[in-house]
Design a protein around this nucleic acid. Structure first.
Lengths: 156, 156
DNA sequence: GCGAGTTCATTGGTCGACCAACGAATTCAC
DNA sequence: GTGAATTCGTTGGTCGACCAATGAACTCGC
């Protein structure tokens, strides 16, 4: 009665259980780790993504931001509200199209940019510590494939 | 030792940017995908982890559950409240130690077990679709290493 | 036996993230 | 130009997840 849950029949490799499970654990740890490193900057986990986009892109529409980050519009709304209150971003209405909110990083926020970059480098190093070049390359490649797989879920 | 954060130039393979970033995206997609598959069962993303633990372990202390799932106690409290309201789990006070809450899967919940298992298999397949055995093995192995890396963050 | 510390769970607060529903602005059709 | 779709952002509701602090129960020391 012990069932046999994942039986893809080819599960011989180090069985930490299904990869999905490990992936979930790893991503949580990764996020947590990133959050801790990020805290000194005053940003929360996830916000750095948004800020990096703004730093790179300049002034962008909110809808564009949501698309770029692949986030729900409502998520972006809320994140931006916090970030605006924190003085990290500036939101203005597009005079051309009054529906649109144009978002850009505040001048002060640019002081965070190198810190965030450093945190990311640190996280990257911590994540990939002990992996040789070959493994890193393989991991990046496979992860990329998986991303494509999951992107094409498109619920329909 | 500063500077030159990610581009160690040895990162020639498909540069989707730092792996951390891809990992974050993938994990989000993965979670989303799992959530969608899970919805018909009435469970939310993350809850299936907990249920599977209960199904496997039987009756466990809440603290034990938190440790097993590597979650914050408060997170578990809230999850269990929802799950209890949904009739998926039963919580009882340990008469031996009245601090302790003993948690077990409800009888009805066992009907979900095979469905959840199926969802997991489905997710697994969708995630790893198009990867050959070697890649799957490599991915599992590397992921495992990364998990160890991130686990040892132990902030102090 | 009584107080100090520890363990356990809960509460309150914050944030990310989703979906569904809505109102406001714009575009498209006629 | 008026009305119907569409786009854009917001709001409300729900859930996962964290931290910090609190209260309840137990354990240990004396």
């Amino acid at each position: 009665m012990t069932s046999e849950p994942t039986r893809t029949e080819a599960t011989e490799a180090g069985d930490d259980g299904p990869v999905s499970q490990t992936l979930a654990r790893v991503s949580r740890l990764h996020r947590l780790s990133g959050g801790k490193l990020l805290r000194p900057t005053g940003l929360c986990s996830g916000q750095e993504f948004l800020m990096m986009t703004l730093w790179r892109e300049g002034s962008v529409r909110q809808s564009e931001l949501a698309k770029t980050l692949d986030l729900d519009p409502s998520t972006v709304t809320l994140m931006l509200r916090r970030l605006e209150q924190g003085g990290h971003v500036v939101r203005t209405r597009d005079p051309q199209d009054r529906r649109v909110m144009l978002v850009r990083a505040s001048a002060e926020s640019y002081a965070l940019r190198p810190k965030v970059a450093q945190v990311w480098a640190q996280l990257e190093e911590h994540t990939l510590d002990g992996l040789d070049d070959e493994e890193r390359e393989a991991f990046a490649r496979i992860l990329s494939k998986i991303e494509k797989n999951l992107s094409s879920t498109d619920d329909g």
